[in-house]
Simulated assay, not measured.
Amino acid sequence: MNSYRIPEIAKQYTDYDMIQTHTDLPDFPDYRTRLLFAFLNGNSKLRESSELFALVTSLVQIGLDTHDRVSITNDVKEKKVARSRQMKVLAGDYFSSLYYNLLAQTGQIELVSLLSTAICEVNRQKMNLYMMMKQLKVSAEEYIQHLVEINSELFLSFSGYLEEMYHQAYPELLKGFTKCEVIFKEIFRTESAEDFQGSWGFWHILQNGSKEERKQLQAEEVDPLKVKMLMRKYNVSTQLYQMLDFHITQLFTLVHKLDSDKLISELFHIGEPFLRFLSKPKVLEEI
């Protein structure tokens, strides 16, 4: 199994009518899954299992990401909203449990334990970040770093399975791709004031803004117009573009150090969407 077809395989588990009807699912973790598959598939001892390992890890990630979309409170009683919330809980549980079944069928019991441990660590990291955010004790830089750690943890589990020469390179590359992915998503959070709360821009302005501006951000009802003005004043979109450009350059420098031309080519192909995005006009700054 040399071709990458994991998103298509995953659809048989994610594309259920009931889920599609009542709620929306998070994006497929394509960058991280493709990276893991590339490293596993390049190892002759792991090639047969590379597709299975990457698939179950992506399904667990979708399950965790789906649970993240469940609202903290259950105050809204409107039937459609309540049903959507219930479906997110059930779908998240379903996706997270699939790895037990799929791995048990192939006798990969050790990997069940490995991913279970990683899931516990992800939840611990999320709780730490949640508490820091709730207490307003996180900087913009720390916010990005915590997201990178949280989003890469499941995929880091396989570091010890790889050839020794990649024990250091794989975690560095995984975190590099994950950081670019996190920043990429943060850029799109600048599109609307509704997505601004708790974003990198929020923490950046809270860290650098005046006392009055910080007060505006912490108000129970934030004025969308004021939020847009603050985002423009502090060049939130521009800074995120610059961050993405810097980190994709760093990432490709690391890729160049690998000793496999095939792997280098595959990783450049994975990172190509970031380069295409950076080459487009920065229309988000006008919002």
Rank of each mutant, 00 (worst) to 15 (best):
V138Y: 00
M231F: 13
D223I: 13
T238G: 04
S237P: 07
E186L: 10
K215L: 08
A118D: 00
S139I: 11
R232W: 11
D195Q: 14
N101K: 15
M131V: 06
T106W: 08
E142S: 09
K215S: 15
L147Q: 07
F196G: 08
L114H: 12
I150Q: 11
K175C: 12
W203R: 01
V182R: 05
M127E: 13
A193R: 05
T178G: 12
E164C: 09
V182Q: 01
S199P: 00
V112Y: 00
S192H: 09
L114P: 02
T106K: 15
P171K: 02
Q145D: 15
I187Y: 03
V112A: 06
K175N: 04
E164H: 11
G209V: 09
E194V: 14
E191A: 15
L156Q: 02
L103S: 04
W203A: 07
I187V: 11
Q145W: 11
Y166R: 10
S237I: 00
K126Y: 03
M131H: 13
Y166E: 03
N235Q: 10
Q216P: 02
K137V: 06
F155L: 04
M165W: 04
L154D: 06
G198Y: 01
Y130I: 07
G198A: 06
V222P: 09
E149T: 14
E194C: 10
L156K: 05
K134N: 05
G198M: 02
K185E: 09
V227L: 11
R124N: 14
E186V: 03
D195Y: 13
C120I: 09
Q239D: 05
F196R: 06
K226S: 07
L115P: 00
N101A: 15
Q145C: 14
E141A: 13
V227C: 12
I183T: 04
K185G: 13
M229W: 08
H204N: 00
E194H: 15
Q218P: 04
W203H: 13
M229T: 13
R189K: 15
N208D: 01
I187F: 06
K179R: 14
L156P: 02
Q105C: 11
E220C: 03
H204P: 02
E153G: 00
R124A: 14
K215I: 10
Q197H: 11
S152M: 06
V227G: 01
P171G: 11
M127P: 00
F196V: 13
G209L: 07
E213D: 04
Q135F: 02
L98E: 11
S210C: 13
C120D: 09
F177N: 08
E121D: 13
